[in-house]
């Protein structure tokens, strides 16, 4: 779906992942970014910061996806993690009731702490473990002839989570990182929901809104090549 000709306006959006351990946060990102899935994935190690473009009809959104790196496990996430986040993916495992309680806690925390314009998506993952996963791509659950074989591990009904999401004004999806079901849709929906006004041209991590552009010229890129006019030995 990559649209390479006509240059469209492109902007970076910082997206943070939140949710109980092992609900599939990293797996969702891996599916979205690499279209890949790993059975028995190790707890997140080494994956810091992934980027993936999302092409919309009128603009391109470049997601900078921050994984918690496990720092949420003992409630030790750093403010740096949330800073300037424009979107949050709050994930629960729809076979595990405690994970929705945890997800609601994160939503409340986001509503209390994050910037008011943040787009929050509530995602019930591991849909492949439920009876309504096979056959139709819709999560309606009807006409499922394989239900018996696959078994139904679902513990959280679509209705319950959906009602909650509507009350709180969240985007809502049920996904499977394993099959890829609905994964791209989540990110596309987030991209569409980011208000045009909060988008500026692409920028680095933590960079933010219009208010700071005045001082932009003083920002320094530590990784970039040194000023060609700068003399290596000394400023003499």
């Amino acid at each position: 779906m990559a649209d390479t000709n006509a240059p469209k306006p492109s902007s970076s959006v910082k997206l943070v992942l939140l949710g109980e351990a092992a609900v599939g946060k990293s797996s969702l990102v891996l599916r979205f970014v690499n279209n890949d899935f790993q059975e028995n994935k190790e707890p997140t190690i080494g994956a810091a910061f992934l980027t993936q473009k999302c092409n919309l009809p009128t603009r391109t959104i470049k997601f900078e996806i921050w994984d918690t790196a496990g720092q949420e496990r003992f409630a030790s996430l750093a403010p740096m993690y949330y800073r300037n986040a424009q979107a949050a993916l709050v994930v629960y495992d729809l076979t595990k009731p405690t994970s929705l309680i945890k997800a609601k806690h994160w939503v409340a925390e986001l509503q209390r702490q994050a910037s008011p314009g943040i787009v929050i998506a509530l995602v019930g993952n591991k849909l492949d473990l439920t009876s309504d996963s096979t056959g139709s791509a819709e999560v309606s659950g009807d006409g499922d002839d394989n239900a018996e074989d696959s078994g139904d591990a679902r513990k959280i009904s679509t209705e319950e989570a959906k009602t909650y999401a509507e009350e709180e004004g969240l985007l809502f999806f049920e996904t499977s990182a394993k099959t890829g079901h609905n994964v791209t849709e989540v990110f596309t929906a987030i991209a569409n929901a980011i208000p045009e006004t909060s988008l500026k041209s692409a920028r680095g991590p933590g960079a933010s809104h219009a208010g700071v552009s005045r001082t932009e010229e003083q920002r320094v890129n530590l990784n970039g090549p040194r000023d060609p006019n700068a003399k290596e030995a000394c400023a003499c």
Partner: peptide, 29 residues
Amino acid sequence: IYPLYGLGELPQGFARLSAIYGGTYMLNT
């Protein structure tokens, strides 16, 4: 040079590096 949002961002950045490579973090302890 100076980091946006203050020097407190520096330890947070290295803590995140550690966590990414498997470090376990416990505040309030």
